[in-house]
């Protein structure tokens, strides 16, 4: 397994490099720059600023310098947040997104898996139809509808929670629900699908023929295989969850990473764009690796492949 992790680690280096090249090229290809604003700024000042930040150098030189700093773990200064480095901004906002993501994940799995199981075991009954229609609605309702809806009902009408903000523990509830319900709906459907697939297998019939109680059939014989689709989904989903959702963070005014991600692109904050993209890419790669390891643990027929 350690060999597997090591090889996968080596593989990520070229992947991250290509992502860096592409992101760099694309952000520079977009018109405008970090200092272009609606208010007219004298060309002399712009020139001076470009020189100060090294933006006047030829692009390959700029890229070379960026990579050099990156290797030292330095993501560079933000061009829009004066006096702050990208490292500081990511370091400050990621924990918030991580916390939100973990709560959401807890809700997604804690709700999605039991509901999916129930629906699969009692397929084609009310216990299947009702929760699954709910899940379908959860998938169809975008977070930018669900979020304000929850804020309206529980924030304004019932008044249990603040409509927005990220100060008290109670502030975690609505945004976590918004994200968690959305992903939970996917998890429920994937669980149901995976379990139905497994429950129709010959070896489940064998277990029945052995007199295994129904509960143990689900729990011991079917669950491992039935959850494989969920595990596969979890890698990218987890990366998306903990790197922050722009929509949810905007709705609830949460100082998370997701907003920086999008704003950086709009502001042509080149280093910020590079920083957030590379950060997200690394997360995604790590999560997928964890998922690969989990899958081997769950499925004895799989071997570590590099």
């Amino acid at each position: 397994m350690f060999r597997f992790i090591f090889i996968r680690f080596l593989q990520t280096i070229p992947v991250l490099f290509i992502i860096a090249v592409l992101t760099f090229a694309m952000s520079r290809a977009a018109p405008g720059g970090p200092f272009s604003q609606e208010r007219r700024v004298s060309p002399v000042i712009i020139e001076r600023m470009n020189e100060y930040y090294g933006l006047a150098d030829p692009l390959p030189v700029q890229f070379g310098n960026y990579i050099k700093n990156l290797l030292r773990g330095d993501l560079g200064p933000s061009y829009r947040h004066e006096g702050r480095t990208v490292n500081e901004i990511v370091g400050g906002s990621f924990p918030v997104s991580l916390e939100l993501g973990m709560w959401s994940l807890l809700i997604a799995l804690g709700l999605g898996i039991p509901v999916g199981l129930l629906a699969a075991v009692y397929r084609n009954t009310l216990l299947d139809y009702v929760p699954m229609s709910g899940a379908m609605m959860g998938i169809c309702l975008p977070t930018f509808v669900m979020g304000p809806l929850l804020a309206l009902v529980f924030g304004l009408w019932i008044g249990w929670f603040n409509v927005s903000g990220w100060h008290t523990p109670a502030d975690r509830v609505l945004p976590s629900l918004t994200l968690g319900l959305y992903f939970g709906a996917y998890v429920a459907r994937l669980t149901r699908g995976g379990m139905l697939e497994v429950l129709s297998q010959d070896y489940i019939r064998t277990a029945r023929a052995k007199g295994v109680p129904e509960f143990m059939i689900v729990y011991k014989h079917a669950l491992k295989g039935g959850l494989l689709p969920v595990v596969a989904f979890l890698g990218p989903a987890l990366a998306a969850l903990i790197s922050g959702s722009f929509v949810v963070e905007t709705i609830f005014q949460i100082p998370g990473l997701g907003r920086h991600f999008v704003n950086a692109a709009f502001n042509r904050d080149y280093t910020m764009v590079m920083g957030t993209v590379l950060f997200y890419a690394t997360l995604l790669i790590v999560m997928n690796m964890i998922v690969d390891i989990l899958q081997v643990l769950l499925n004895p027929r799989l071997k570590y492949e590099s």
């Binding site: 010959d202 070896y203 064998t206 023929a209 007199g211 295994v212 011991k220 499925n299 004895p300």
Partner: peptide
């Protein structure tokens, strides 16, 4: 089932649980 009457199935490749 499994105590007084037991069964052996056709396809041994799919009749044993691959996860256990």
């Amino acid at each position: 089932r499994g105590k007084r009457i037991a069964m052996v199935f056709q396809d041994p490749m799919t009749s044993l649980n691959p996860y256990l």
